[in-house]
Design a protein around this nucleic acid. Structure first.
Lengths: 117, 117
DNA sequence: CAGGATCCCCTCTGATACTG
DNA sequence: CAGTATCAGAGGGGATCCTG
């Protein structure tokens, strides 16, 4: 049993803190759909993420070694992002949650509605 | 392939938005450790969550039907929280991520350090 | 095309005090 | 014990403009 209260040393807290922001898990999911993707592809795929937050999210994932970023020195610029081996390992775990979401969304929406009534 | 850009209708976005806050997944994990838990038990187990945020997190989870809340009409008050069947279904999925975290935390910390150097 | 740099808002979060 | 109410602050996040 992990010591959740030890924030610095607890791997669970440490990793969960990273994943638990508005966009990270979604970006991983999107990157999992193709071998590699360019900045604007990811941007369009998500739709309502700002360029700033996409950049921030990608940089954090890169820093953690979950994605790689390859810059091609061409004009116009071309940058490709893809999951690293580490990131690919995480992908199915998040994907399992999305499948659960698909199965139970209706029930959850119904629960919420009932709760607020 | 889900339409991630349709925020309202997309189950993935909808559920991920709920899970992606600072405390929710952690609360689910903690509740998964016992059959049921009282407010202050959860509070101590996590350590650095404020009472307010714990309350908010618990209420949201209750609204979604992932946990149940039973109030005993005694003095001093007693309230027990536990995962519902729906919540129990989600537990192992999150737990798998924590196991991944345990395995790769050292590597990730090392990646971060290297990235910032 | 892929962002970097700014500005700014407002939501999320915490601290504190209070209560049935 | 298990919260609620209120206030205040930080920073997450968006909009806009700019550039190699």
């Amino acid at each position: 049993m992990s010591d959740f209260s030890n924030i610095e040393a607890c791997p669970v807290r440490n990793v969960l803190d990273r994943l638990s922001d508005k966009w990270t898990m979604l970006v991983i999911l999107v990157l999992g759909e193709s071998k590699e993707m360019r900045f604007n592809e990811i941007h369009k795929r998500i739709g309502d993420i700002s360029e700033k937050m996409l950049t921030v999210s990608l940089r954090k994932l890169e820093a953690d070694g979950l994605i790689s970023r390859e810059v091609y020195p061409v004009i116009p610029p071309k940058v490709e992002y893809k999951l690293t081996a580490l990131g690919q390992e995480l992908l199915p775990l998040i994907d399992t949650i999305t499948q659960w979401a698909d199965r139970h969304m209706q029930q959850i929406l119904q629960n919420r509605q009932q709760y607020n009534a």
